[in-house]
């Protein structure tokens, strides 16, 4: 039971980090109708900017620098590339983002090389004892930070003018334009928010028990794809639920690996995708997705 509880907390923590990434993915999709395959490189760029900044400044400032850098990169991609393809088929745009991802990841891998960077974060490898449970501090910090950011995002999405414009544009772009909502601004802000959230996720994907940020950290963002797809590509609630499902599945499958040895090793990596396939068999639009999304 202790093992199960520990795994559950670690799973929820991991899931909340995936939810941060998936949330960015979903708001880009909602506001620009682009499936953003460049999300992994946004994440890695934010993380790399933060660890570089860490050489010169305290942890929190460096983290902020990474967040700002990823947000700016997101806006730059939207403004310089995505906007030029306005009015084209969405599948064209999705392929453009694959190209962007390849270019960015290649350049970042060249910069990072074989090195592993540490955030030198305030939590280190310390553990928290909760009754009989032992959990790394970083996992608790990740959970609290992600929950706070998601909470702020959802409140803003629901109550601010920005949120109203985002939701209006997501529902019907042309009608939103007729209301005087500037779609360019909506889409640039979506990319900025997605970049910022990804940069925060990069931090928690690189701290203990992981060794640090390396050139493959971006690949973890790929787990946000099953998260977003399980939840339904156009649903913010879905991104959160999908993130948690993926996180818990992964933690459980990894934790109980020995009992699942007949499936071979590495089932933890695979499990989220199995869950995704099962969910899609039952609900092709995801758990919370809109059904008529077949046009994408």
């Amino acid at each position: 039971m202790t093992v199960f509880s520990e795994l559950l907390i670690i799973g929820v923590s991991l899931g909340s980090v995936y939810a941060l990434i998936a949330l960015g993915f979903v708001i880009i999709f909602k506001s620009t109708e682009v499936v953003n395959f460049a999300h992994a490189s946004l994440l890695l760029a934010g993380g790399y900017a933060a660890v570089q900044a860490r050489e010169h400044m305290p942890f929190w400032l460096a983290l902020l620098a990474g967040v700002v850098a990823a947000a700016l990169l997101g806006v730059a991609l939207e403004f310089l590339v995505i906007r030029r393809y306005r009015g084209r088929d969405h599948s064209v745009l999705a392929i453009v983002t694959i190209g962007l991802d390849i270019v960015l990841l290649t350049e970042l891998a060249r910069q990072i090389g074989p090195d592993i960077f540490s955030y030198r974060d305030p939590w280190g490898s310390r553990l928290i004892e909760l009754g009989s449970l032992t959990i790394p501090q970083t996992r608790v910090a990740a959970l609290i930070t992600a929950a706070a950011l998601i909470g702020i995002f959802l409140l803003a999405f629901r109550f601010t003018s920005w949120g109203v414009s985002m939701r209006a544009a997501a529902e019907h772009r042309e009608t939103a334009a007729l209301m005087g909502i500037r779609l360019g601004w909506v889409s640039a802000s979506a990319w900025a928010v997605a970049g910022a959230l990804a940069a925060v996720a990069a931090l928690f994907l690189s701290v203990f028990p992981t060794t640090g940020l390396d050139r493959d950290t971006g690949l973890v963002a790929l787990k946000a794809f099953p998260a977003a797809i399980i939840g339904g590509l156009d649903s913010t609630t879905g991104a959160l639920v999908g993130g948690l499902v993926v996180g818990i599945t992964e933690a459980m499958a990894t934790g109980y690996q020995n009992d699942l040895s007949f499936l071979g090793s590495g089932i933890g990596e695979l499990a989220p995708y199995l869950v995704m396939v099962l969910v899609l068999l039952a609900r092709p639009a995801g758990l919370f997705g809109t059904r008529e999304l077949s046009r994408v």
């Binding site: 109203v164 414009s165 005087g180 909502i181």
Partner: peptide, 19 residues
């Protein structure tokens, strides 16, 4: 073309964003 998934109040709010 009302924003079907938004509340009536939010629809009206969306209308004021361009003003």
């Amino acid at each position: 073309q009302v924003f079907a998934r938004m509340t009536v109040a939010d629809n009206l709010r969306a209308g004021s964003l361009g003003a």
